[in-house]
Design a protein around this nucleic acid. Structure first.
Lengths: 113, 113
DNA sequence: CGGTATCCTTCTTGATACTG
DNA sequence: CAGTATCAAGAAGGATACCG
């Protein structure tokens, strides 16, 4: 596997590239919140426990930059902004489900719950 | 999803627990090197480009602590140590393959290679 | 409501060097 | 050969505050 550069960063394998799209503490929770349709900023914040404005903002921006979600702003008062998954992101959902299932089996083996 | 504590760390969902086992820059490359059987320390080092002794050492130790691999030390001169996957780790291999496949598709969309 | 900026801490990784 | 220790740099993430 040959390494490559993208967006000023070096990647050594495809998994690192995958993780740039769905990795980190917050991206998967965000993607899962959006799996059933558009959700607005404030509802994401309510749905994801412990996330700060900064993290929600930066992660949404990164996901948008990478084409994992799109943003729709309605010029109302008060403002309304909705986020929704792209096809690219939808393709990751089955893998995310498997990561969850594997995590649950690891938790069982570790005696959690 | 209820958060939980394990090994002095807090987890908010099963995926974080999964990532504690296979996440980071080096764990997946190491696991993949071992998929076809036992490999010794020096061969892992040769097989994984750019990894430092420290990273190889710490990651092997973490994987061992989490029951993802076992270590067999032969008391020879010079010393020989072999690492092999556990069943627990083998169950992760199909998911790792999917993460790779997804990464490759993302790379194609991004125009890499 | 929905961001955005700034500072600061902590966690991860890299460089280097040394040991049984 | 196969580790292990120490120090430092960098990235990720949290706290806080302010804006259109």
């Amino acid at each position: 596997m040959k390494e490559f550069l993208y967006d000023n960063r070096i990647y050594y394998n495809p998994i690192e590239f995958t993780m740039a799209h769905i990795g980190g503490t917050w991206k998967i929770p965000i993607l899962l919140c959006l799996r059933n349709g558009s959700v607005r900023y404030g509802d994401l914040k309510k749905a994801i426990p412990h996330i700060s404005d900064k993290m929600l903002f930066t992660q949404l921006r990164e996901l948008e930059d990478k084409g994992m979600l799109t943003k729709q702003a309605f010029t109302e008062k008060p403002p309304r902004v909705e986020y929704q998954l792209t096809e690219k992101a939808r393709k990751a959902l089955p893998i995310i489900d498997q990561l969850t299932a594997y995590g649950i089996s690891l938790m069982k083996e570790a005696g959690i719950n």
